[in-house]
C-alpha cells in the first residue's frame, strides 16, 4: 500500500467513525453539530491516559477508558441538551463543542494551544479494525428493538410514545453512545498521528460530519457509510483527474463542486443518497431469486 493510499484510507476510516457517531442521534431525529467536541475529548483523554507524563496506561486500555469518559460526559450533557429542540439543539451542541475546544486550548497539562504529542502509535491496521467494528456495531444497534424505537421516534415521536417507547431514555442512549463513538474516533486519531491539537477539531469538522450523515441519509444504517465514503473519496478522485488534466485551479476548486453538489442533492434527493426504499430495491435486486422462490413457496 503506498503512503498516499494509506493516508487516504486513514482519513476515510476516521470519517466513517465520526459519521456513525453523529448518525445515531440523527437516526432519532436529533441534529448534533458538536462532533468536534466529543472528538477533542476522546483524543486528549486517550493521549493523556497513555502518555508517560500522564498515566502511562497501555494504548488499548487508554482508548477504552477514554471512550467511557467521553460517554460519561455525553450522558451528563445529554440530559440538559436533549431538553432543547430543533434549532436550539443544533446551537447547544455547537456551543458545547466550542466550550470543549476553548477549555482544551487552555489546559497547560494538555499542551495548551501548541497541542499535545501522543506516545503510542496506532498503525493503519488498528484504525481500519476500529472503523469496521464501529460499522458492524451500528448495523447491529440499528437492527435491535432499540434501533427500531429510534427510527420510530425520528418519524413520529408522539406515536412512538403511545406504543410504550421511552422516548427520552432512547434519545439519551443514542446521544451517549454516539458521543462514545466520536470519542473513540478522536482516540484513534490521536494515536495514529501521535499528535493532538484542539484547533484541528473545529466547527468545519462538525459541519462536514453532519453533512456526511444528512447527505448519506439517516433512514438506514448504510447512509453514513455511503456518505462518508462518497464525500471523502470523490473529491480526492476529482483532484487526481484535475491534476491529470493539468488544471491546478480545477484541483483546488473541488470543494466548490462539493458545495454545489450538496445544494443540488437537496433539490433532487433531499432524504439523502440512501433511502429506505432504495435499500429495499437493492436488497430485492440482490436476492431476487431467493425472494421469488420464497413467494412461490408461500
Amino acid at each position: 500500500m503506498s503512503g498516499y493510499v494509506e493516508a487516504q484510507l486513514i482519513i476515510l476510516c476516521l470519517s466513517v467513525i465520526y459519521a456513525y457517531a453523529i448518525f445515531l442521534p440523527a437516526a432519532s431525529g436529533q441534529l448534533n453539530l458538536g462532533a468536534a467536541g466529543f472528538i477533542t475529548l476522546g483524543a486528549y483523554a486517550s493521549g493523556w491516559l497513555n502518555n508517560a507524563d500522564g498515566l502511562g496506561l497501555p494504548m488499548g486500555v487508554g482508548m477504552v477508558l477514554a471512550m467511557l469518559f467521553v460517554g460519561a460526559i455525553g450522558f451528563a450533557i445529554s440530559l440538559p441538551i436533549l431538553r432543547t429542540r430543533g434549532v436550539y439543539m443544533v446551537l447547544a451542541t455547537f456551543a458545547f463543542a466550542e466550550v470543549v475546544s476553548g477549555i482544551a486550548i487552555n489546559m497547560e497539562f494538555l499542551g495548551g494551544a501548541a497541542g499535545m504529542p501522543v506516545d503510542a502509535h496506532a498503525p493503519v491496521e488498528i484504525v481500519v479494525a476500529v472503523a469496521v467494528a464501529v460499522v458492524l456495531f451500528c448495523f447491529y444497534f440499528m437492527s435491535t428493538r432499540l434501533g427500531l424505537a429510534l427510527r420510530s421516534i425520528h418519524d413520529d415521536e408522539n406515536v412512538a410514545l403511545l406504543f410504550g417507547v421511552d422516548v427520552r431514555t432512547a434519545r439519551v442512549v443514542a446521544f451517549t453512545v454516539g458521543g462514545m463513538l466520536a470519542g473513540l474516533g478522536g482516540a484513534v486519531y490521536g494515536h495514529h498521528y501521535n499528535y493532538v491539537e484542539a484547533q484541528t477539531f473545529n466547527v468545519l469538522l462538525s459541519i462536514y460530519i453532519l453533512l456526511y450523515v444528512l447527505l448519506g441519509g439517516t433512514q438506514t444504517a448504510w447512509g453514513p457509510l455511503v456518505g462518508a465514503v462518497f464525500f471523502t473519496v470523490i473529491p480526492e478522485i476529482f483532484r487526481h483527474v484535475a491534476i491529470e488534466m493539468g488544471s491546478d485551479w480545477l484541483a483546488d476548486s473541488r470543494f466548490i463542486f462539493f458545495g454545489m453538489f450538496i445544494v443540488l442533492m437537496m433539490v433532487v434527493r433531499p432524504e439523502g443518497v440512501v433511502t429506505r426504499t432504495m435499500q429495499d430495491r437493492c436488497a430485492g435486486f440482490l436476492s431476487g431469486r431467493r425472494g421469488r422462490a420464497r413467494r412461490a413457496a408461500e
Binding site: 441534529l31 458545495g259 454545489m260 445544494v263
Partner: peptide, 21 residues
C-alpha cells in the same frame, strides 16, 4: 426538514472555496 440548513451549509462551502481558489 433540515433541507434549508444543509443547503445553506453547502453554500457556505461554495463561497469559502470560491474565495480561497
Amino acid at each position: 426538514h433540515a433541507l434549508p440548513l444543509v443547503s445553506s451549509l453547502g453554500f457556505l462551502i461554495i463561497f469559502e472555496h470560491l474565495v480561497i481558489s
